[in-house]
Simulated assay, not measured.
Amino acid sequence: MNINLHFDCLSGISGDMTLGALIDLGVDPDLIRTGLASLNVADLKLHVDDVKKCGFRATHIRVEHPEQKAHRHLHHIEAMIDAADAISDGAKTLARRIFQCIGEAEAKVHGCDLRKVHFHEVGAVDSIADIVGVAIAIDALGIDSVTSSAIPTGTGSITIDHGRVAVPAPATVEILTGVPLAYCEIESELTTPTGAAIIKTLASSFGPAPAMTPHRVGYGAGTRDLPGQANVLRVTMGQLPEAASDPGQIETDRVTLLETNIDDATAEQLADVTERLMRAGALDVWQTPCVMKKGRLASVVSVLCGGSKAATMQSILFQHTSTIGIRRQILERAKLARQAVEIETAYGPAQGKVVTLPDGEKRFSLEDDEAKRLSRSSGKSTAEMQREAVLAWSQQQPE
């Protein structure tokens, strides 16, 4: 049986929302309290309450402790965790990984050595309690994998120890590099550095919920009330089907699709713009014949790219075609996990990629440029080179 947790972060994610959702899933609050007490923070209390957000019940977490002004370094927090005798080794390891994630982001944002990073807001006792509490809860649940929706960060600005900054805060956006973000116009900090580090550390993939049989659902409440939606984090615990027992084999991301209709370009001109788009970083470019108004024959030029490349692709289309309008869509994409490999062939080393299918089977393909290179040196066709490379790869696999 493979148990997965899926985080639905419609209203963002924070440490207290995560801990509340995990307790709502069934983790004993007293287990968390016992672990937190062993951190030896004086008068630390964990309050667990049922609340309603926009009419929906959820678990709200509040950490009570005397006010503290101290700014901690990473090694101070790690020492607290290591000395806690009521926390399992697995939970300690996870808590340290989450704090390491935050520390590396803070070090980059502030341009300093990791050992010299001051944990300001995240070094506060309530954030330490949230992170350590989440680590204890995850360890107690004994889950096998974690997936998550795309992450909304909110908009606007907030005030932190370093002054007023745009949302998401600098550390949050640094932590979330490589993580798909969800569009959101709500003027509030929906995702905190603590929440970002928790989900970045836990989740193996981001996107729609995987196919699974739900067992339990937990809801963790944020403190603020949001306009038009419940400020809650939903975490679903369920069993993955056997064929999807490793969700890391199927990765998800978000891409941009640009499309425009061209009715006055030659094939050579379209080939030129395709080459320019690919050189600039497009994931793929293709053309589809179409019939426009008044019976005009045309081609739909489609460009698939990462969101950060969309403006560049758009500029190339406007500059090197006659288009006066470009359609844009944001798409969720599922793709097989892949790995670049080098194999030995009868004609020398060659580069290819290996993808892992949902059932765990692996498949190799030779890169097209490599097939052409080997074809030129061997005198054989590219198709023959592909077949020989697949055979060479299969023979080089361990039994």
Rank of each mutant, 00 (worst) to 15 (best):
K380W: 07
T93K: 12
C101L: 01
A311Y: 11
V41E: 09
A280M: 13
S375P: 02
A182H: 07
N261Y: 06
K69H: 15
A171L: 08
A383S: 10
S14I: 05
G325D: 11
P247Y: 05
Q239R: 10
P214L: 02
Q229C: 09
V146G: 03
V235Q: 01
D50R: 09
E78R: 09
V285C: 05
A243N: 14
E367Y: 02
S149W: 01
T323Q: 01
A271H: 02
S14L: 07
R376F: 04
L233N: 04
E104T: 06
C101W: 00
G348L: 00
S14P: 05
D144P: 03
G156T: 15
I326E: 03
Q329F: 11
L44F: 04
D30N: 14
S145W: 10
E344M: 12
A298D: 04
L22C: 08
C290Y: 10
L258E: 11
D82W: 04
S377F: 00
G218R: 00
M212H: 02
T159C: 12
H6N: 03
T191D: 10
P247C: 02
H162Q: 12
S308H: 14
L357W: 14
V173Q: 15
A265K: 02
I87V: 08
R296G: 00
K372N: 12
P29W: 00
S365Y: 12
A129E: 05
I102S: 01
